[in-house]
Amino acid sequence: MLSEFLQFLFSGVTVGATYALAALGFTLIYNASHVINFAQGEFIMLGGMLTVAGVSAGLPLPVAIALAIAAAAVVGMLVVRFAIQPAKGADVVSLIIITIGVSLVVRGLTQISLGKGTHSFPAFSGSEPLHVLGATLLPQSLWVLGVTAAVVALLGWFFSRTLTGKAILATAYNRLAAQLVGISTNKVLFLSFALSAALGALGGVLVTPITMTSADVGIMLGLKGFVAAVLGGLGNGLGAVVGGLLVGVAEAMAAGYISSAYKDAVPFVMILFLLFFLPRGLFGARVTERV
């Protein structure tokens, strides 16, 4: 049935766009620092929760959103300053543990200051669903998809047309060489964390009217974002977006056609099979490693 299939697709794409934004954040940070940032989900949470806090403090929604995104970016930079930079030279596992520690701190502080409850705010352009061939779609889903697309386009322009963007890319390719040509890899580190935090927060803001938010939504979103990023081949922006949408759609299709109980396992099964056959993800570089 077409309308059923479409409904599953809409559901998947909406959720997938969230994963895509999380995966983009992962990718940005991974490129700049080779850190797998398990705190990425917390930036998404901060976007939603801080906006809620702003609105309940009486700020108009757009102001609250802007402040929340800015605050998340600041948190991102604080994370670099106090957790990533001091641990220079630590190996992959230590860095993973550090980011998990950071996520615990951010989540814990949010629970203490903003409570453990679940919150939401109204959708940007109403909640009257749109009907497409017998399936329904919320206007907010279009917001999520539209903004995700815009962000991808902007990032594409940023990385290919601006000097700063190119500096980040150069650092991703070869850190030492980048330093040698005078790029401050330190600045790149700060910039990429701030950018990725802001992106995450933006995602959190966009989905809150659909999915609601609470201090502990970051855990699952972070994990799924990581899956999506790896699926797309870590380090590839477009791959991250495709990966995110794929994970979302696969989950929705699994819930619709196979078993809703096992839909959460689907992305992980997918990624295992993919890695077994394509060890570097869908869009990963096919290069041989130097030793």
Partner: peptide, 20 residues
């Protein structure tokens, strides 16, 4: 007889199935 995860953010897939 469908289920959803406690952290799920969209249950339209399950509901579409139930509806039918």
């Amino acid at each position: 007889n469908e289920t959803y995860g406690p952290k799920d953010s969209d249950m339209t897939a399950q509901l579409t199935k139930i509806k039918g």
